[in-house]
Design a protein around this nucleic acid. Sequence first.
RNA 1: GGUCCGUUCGUCUAGGGGUUAGGACACGUCCCUUUCACGGAUGAAACACGGGUUCGAUUCCCGUACGGACUACCA
Length: 506
Amino acid sequence: MTNDNLMIKPRVRFAPSPTGALHIGGVRTALYNYLFARQQGGTFILRIEDTDQGRYVPGAEEYIIEALRWVGLRPDEGVGFGGPDGPYRQSDRKEIYLKYAHELVQRGHAYYAFDTPEELDVCRQSQEHFTYNHLTRNGLLNSLTLGDAESSSRIAEGKHFVIRLKVEPGRSIRIKDLIRGDVVFESSELDDKVLLKTDGMPTYHLANIVDDHLMRITHVIRGEEWLPSTAHHVLLYEGFGWQDTMPLFSHLPLIMKPVGNGKLSKRDGAKFGIPVFPLSWKGETVEENFDGFRETGFLPEAVVNFLALLGWHPGGDQDLFSMDELIQLFSIEHIGKSGARFDYEKAKSFNQKYIHAMDNATLVALVRPLAEAKGYQVSDAFLSKAVALMKERVTFLTDFVEMGYYLFEPVREYDEVTLQKRWNGEIATVFAELTEKLATFDFFNSVELEEAVKAFIQEKGLKPGDILPLLRIAFVGTMKGPAVFETAEVFGHEETLLRLRAFLIR
RNA sequence: GGUCCGUUCGUCUAGGGGUUAGGACACGUCCCUUUCACGGAUGAAACACGGGUUCGAUUCCCGUACGGACUACCA
């Protein structure tokens, strides 16, 4: 058996199902596919796998496209992007699967089955671990037991049927997984999977293999949950006679819950109060609303960096990588084998670092919409200073306008605990005096202000600790805030006075 | 239950037959700073267990335990 896959430009695909918001694990799968394609000079394809009409959710497709756009993964081909192998939405390819399903029956690798779901349920109830396979199919209603004539007439009569893969027992199926090495399955253990459903739509297994073949996919990079059915997929490639161009498989480790057992699920977001989706999602009910990384205030670069390292590392001690670096360094061989726990603290840390490293102008452009959404109308000049003042102490983009609301509107409340300790009649008098002094002192910058205030403190025989904390509270209301004098500089003389006076008459 | 996959600090991981087992997040202490944060320094913290193979195993092999996925006319 030859395999030319390594000689040609790779073609990979990300093939999500539009059943709701795209899970963050899906974003990681897309990212790995994208990185691999970009590094190899290959093609990254977006295929929508909507073969389950019952689970289709309107808006999910748009969500997927927008999520990929947000994190910077642009497909070269696919739904919404065009390309030579379309359509890329499986529901638009129904006839293709139909044709291939019947072809597989002709080739003797599949058969018609007439058992209804209800009948199979009965089997499952009477038999502990019932599976439709080489052992049981002889006792069931299918073209193997009924014969061609009877089957044909049943079909002609319009009886419902499915097409099942005919798995021949007694052989070993070896899968060469780029991450896990050789994985062997015994065909005797495999069930006769449904390939074509009664509604005429294919199952994942059929659609996936037909499309991957037709779209000339060279590498399948997908979640580990697909590893068990890969043996069936290999059988399909062989059944169609496509084994020579069968793609290479790489099964990614799963992303696990932050705490507890099992893989990360959409419910974990609400459960732990963290986002597990790239973008927020509005469902039919409150329970189906999900927070997104974007709305939480994450930078896509940080999310990409975080996700890239959840199950992969190029080696060495570096942990901050730009998309370009990731593209350059990515390798399937360095993908880990075990599940990676979703560590939200780490995600936040990446975000913080990316915000710190970002230049003010870029930050201004990102914060402006957030400020405007809050009704704050400010100049770029002011926003730039505000952002510079705050960026070392925020974790999220939203912190600029939430934690730092006081930069855009009057102080909402003053820290009473600190005031209890530091405010008294005597200090109130001095503070009023300081305010009046500053009223006539039109300072230009924090240094000038600081000199003036310190001089005043000394003149009054006080200590910095007597006045500085109170100034901070007057300016921003809390003891947790940016440097006092720099804050005043951002406000400017007029606003600084306004705040001092508001504080005095509070 | 069956099939398959996995197991290095709490977490993400580097490493790999002989290392003081490295980094990052989180945590502790100190410095900077009369706030918070950033930054700097520093500390605690890991090769699941049992057998082999070997002069030597965290690294290779087997088993056990534990974890995970799959087991639908869902993907």
